[in-house]
Amino acid sequence: MTNGLNLKLKIWRQKNQSSDGQLKDYHVKDISPDMSFLEMLDTLNEELESNGEEPVAFEHDCREGICGSCSMVVNGKPHGPERGTTVCQLHMRRFSDGDTLVIEPWRAKAFPIIKDLVVERSAFDRIIAAGGFITARTGSAPDGNAVQIPKEHAELAMDAAACIGCGACVAACKNASAMLFVAAKVSHLSLLPQGKVEARKRVLDMVKVMDQEGFGNCTNTQACEVECPKEIKIENIARLNREWIKASAAARDV
């Protein structure tokens, strides 16, 4: 390879949840600019493995930016320096020869580290279980076209529904708040007529579990929107707040 990159890596290594971790130095040579960031890590790992050393554990699966598995902070930014991009879709042409890359896991109380760059994000599943759904028992649905949904509502709902549940919003937030994640789901469902029936209970239950799980509060720094690989807008948080206030007021009424 003629224009390969030589890079210095500082990677967080941690054996398990109860042990201490530290940044460790590695070098990789001749990295093709066409490689994805994860392929660069694959290259490092293969080298480690053939030397009988333990490779760096990291989560990844689809490598197409949609499953939400990959989750690492590169030089202080969740998913690395490119806007609107998961780290699996980040390509090495974005970096220069001789760069130093610091690679760390998501850091948040609600996302404990399991090993190296792998964190536990099941708190998100518990938030969804609390209310992030529209109850529609299999077999009970009316015809798909029975209810018209204005195109702009469907589009807005889709913008919010594009969330991949990766947790970058939490990792980006100095308060480790999950408001953007929760807001995306609440918006997606409350913007649709099907979602109105359960709207009040949904938002109250989801926010309650969000707080129980140890996520911080939102102080409107907007870091989450900047780092979201799917560019979910913080206007969803405004909608979440409106829904929550409406629901809380109504809960007092009855």
Binding site: P142, G144, P150, L189
Partner: peptide
């Protein structure tokens, strides 16, 4: 056909025409 009905009811944001239909 039941699948489409089921998914619409769950809130799957399928693409719509300007009329609001699927």
């Amino acid at each position: 056909n039941h699948i489409i009905d089921q998914c619409v009811s769950q809130g799957v944001p399928f693409a719509r025409e300007y009329s609001g239909y699927l």
